[in-house]
């Protein structure tokens, strides 16, 4: 990828070399329940970061905040240096207009625990829908791209099938293809194998390993599959009660965790 050094004409501070995602003093409350408190971390371009920790520790909330499925209570999130939902104007914290939000959100894709395929469309239509109507691709182009993606996830022969005719694992592979069809720069994977029968997990993880190997998409991964986390991620963040309590490479995290909570957690899940 060529590096751009020309100054950004908008002056918004976006850059081609800075971190892909920056979380600054991020706070999220549901009512009085504080889920994330003063969270700071950044993710580099092409980096794959796995978030681990006990349930309720705030991992999924981070993905949902990035996808703008939840409203940020405090702090800022930057994508490519640009504010996602709230911006600093001097001392003030200003909510951005929905048009601005959606422009940046378009760089982000997400795969959900429950697949969420559209039941009123075939497998192929699930994948082509957004490229045609959001990105403005021609039907033929979208169709050809979708078939390529289905080939990558091993389901080219099921293009015309209805989602309910697929197994959970197949549905999730279609959902991955659907997210990739939007050519996201950032892909959020929210416990994508947690709803699957154990026998079906392997195929889905294999597809994701391939994506990790063949693309430079930045990924944020929430998973309980520690072997997968170790295989694909560059960095692992251990969460507990809304805070990052440990941060390490997967090798270190899974073999020599420092924090006592991390040791307990990994002992329980491994």
């Amino acid at each position: 990828m060529p590096t751009e050094t020309a100054p950004d004409p908008t002056g918004a501070g976006s850059s081609e070399t800075g971190p892909r995602i920056v979380m600054e003093n991020v706070r999220k409350q549901f009512g009085k329940n504080v889920v994330l408190d003063d969270l700071n971390f950044s993710v580099d371009r092409g980096e794959r970061v796995t978030l681990i920790g006990p349930s309720g520790s705030g991992k999924t909330t981070i993905l949902r905040l990035l996808m703008t499925l939840e409203e940020l209570t405090g702090g800022y999130i930057y994508v490519d240096g640009e504010p996602l939902t709230h911006a600093k104007r001097g001392e003030r914290r200003v909510k951005l207009r929905s048009g601005e939000v959606s422009r940046i959100r378009r760089r982000i894709g997400m795969v959900f625990q429950q697949f969420n395929l559209f039941p009123n469309m075939s497998v192929l239509e699930n994948i082509t829908e957004a490229p045609i109507h959001v990105l403005g691709r021609s039907k033929d182009q979208a169709r050809a791209d979708a078939l390529d993606l289905l080939d990558q996830v091993g389901l080219k022969d099921r293009a015309q099938a209805h989602p309910t005719q697929l197994s959970g694992g197949q549905q999730q592979r279609v959902a991955i293809a659907r997210a990739l069809a939007m050519e996201p720069e950032i892909l959020l994977l929210d416990e994508v194998t947690s709803a699957l029968d154990p026998e079906l997990v392997g195929d889905v993880l294999q597809v994701l390993r391939d994506v990790a190997r063949n693309t430079d998409i930045t990924m944020l991964i929430v998973t309980h599959e520690m072997q997968f986390a170790q295989d694909v991620s560059h960095r692992v963040l251990m969460f507990d009660q809304g805070h990052i309590i440990e941060e390490a490479s997967p090798q270190v995290m899974f073999t020599a965790p420092q924090h006592e909570r991390t040791q307990q957690f990994l002992q329980a899940v491994l």
Partner: peptide, 22 residues
């Protein structure tokens, strides 16, 4: 289901589009 609405957002579909098509 809420997941259907959330997925349309994750695919950047506009309100009229997500309502009409999904």
């Amino acid at each position: 289901p809420k997941g259907q609405w959330e997925t349309t957002l994750a695919l950047s579909m506009s309100w009229p589009l997500k309502v009409r098509r999904v």
